[in-house]
Design a binder for these strands. Structure first.
Lengths: 222, 222
DNA sequence: TACTAAACTAACCAACTAGTCCAACAAGGA
DNA sequence: TCCTTGTTGGACTAGTTGGTTAGTTTAGTA
């Protein structure tokens, strides 16, 4: 119980192990991660890890669940209620991007899970029910915007969410190769800022465009 | 023993090994890939692999170089010359997306390389000089569009390229987790088609928007 | 036919990896 | 003092893994 020593505190110790595991998985992916490295990071004995957790995969799934929890929590706590649709959408875009910027571990975890074709998520029933609120939120903003005539009609919320995410996600997840290719340090704060503005600009441009006769429309692409 | 051809053909054998390596790396990532699995896929002895290649990492770098070569080749062979800027841009968007759709290995290779923070690319001087042409191409389309008044002014080509890629890349790279989350099979052909149209729509909306006084602009985001 | 270089293989190894077992110790509450 | 819980240490195993050694087969050629 004594705060200072933090010794012999089962919960805190488990937390330490989980934190170490997250760092390790986020750095090396599932296969690259080493259990020994996790216990070294957590500064506990290997036995203790196996005392509290079933093993590497169990630990991984826990971290994955935490990842989605972080994602959902941070994306859902947008106070969009009361805002006009445009402001709400901008807020939602910025928030989505900010999560990826501030929680970079999330990106590697998602990448890793996709490499495994969402095998672990399929097992975890908790995760799959998480996105309803976000989805509903987005739908509501779109509906209001459409009603007020500021947004175009018939926007697919799922497609839009994927676009909002993708515009930020790709920039960050592939920053190392892209920085090399374009000789521009994408992780620099001013570039991150710039990307955020670009992302919002893109989404708002898309939503506010009212296709006029003669304009290009997706149908012409065929 | 005597198949018809293809026996004792050094070049073809190396090609077989490389193809097997690509399949394996693209399926499991670097750490997940097994040398034994590669030789099994290629149906050669393990030693032959080590006869032609220095080892796992060497093989990986070769595949990575091939990946970028594919990417560059398929992105650069857009015959945009002679097209009006709008058509050229649409063509470029579709092409970029098509590469990711038709060469899914590329995505995993890029993800893997980013997990390693572009360590291998840094070594490979070939790759880094590849993107100049694409960059120049894009710049030219933007310039022409701007001149003709169909595109907005001052678009950053790098930022735009990242957006075009990201809109398609994220959809595909994270298709497994997203499909689960939104209960929609993103890999279904009709959904792929739909996404392509959405991608183009988004990019064109962004480029053709001429901000008017009173409109939202990125500066308002601060 | 004899020879050689290149193509190819089976078997093996040393290092590593996840996970286990067991005996013991340390801290605090009853 | 005893008991429960948290924790460590070290030795150990069973299975993998990347890589090697020591050798055989085949095709071309002198």
């Amino acid at each position: 119980m004594a705060e200072k020593p933090a010794i012999r505190d089962a919960i805190r110790t488990q937390e330490k192990i989980l934190a170490a595991a997250q760092a390790e998985f986020a750095r090396r992916g599932y296969d690259g991660a080493r259990v020994d490295a996790i216990v070294a990071r957590a500064k506990v004995s290997k036995n203790l890890l196996y005392h509290y957790f079933r093993g590497k995969e169990d630990l991984y799934i826990r971290i994955l669940e935490r990842t989605y929890e972080t994602l959902r929590r941070r994306q859902s706590d947008v106070p969009v209620n009361g805002l006009d649709p445009l402001s709400a959408m901008i807020r939602l875009c910025e928030n989505t991007f900010r999560v990826f910027v501030e929680e970079p571990d999330v990106i590697v975890m998602l990448n890793t899970e996709n490499l495994y074709r969402a095998r672990h998520i399929a097992k975890s029933t908790i995760i799959r029910s998480m996105y309803d609120r976000l989805s509903e939120n987005l739908r509501e903003i779109l509906r209001a915007g459409e009603e007020q005539g500021v947004f175009r009609k018939g926007v697919d919320p799922v497609e839009l969410y994927i676009s909002i995410s993708g515009l930020g996600y790709f920039y960050l997840s592939n920053q190392h190769t892209l920085s090399m290719l374009f000789n521009r340090k994408l992780s620099a704060p001013e570039n991150i800022e710039h990307r955020q503005a670009h992302l919002v600009d893109m989404v708002i441009s898309y939503l506010t465009r009212q296709p006029e006769p003669g304009d290009w429309t997706p149908e012409l692409a065929r």
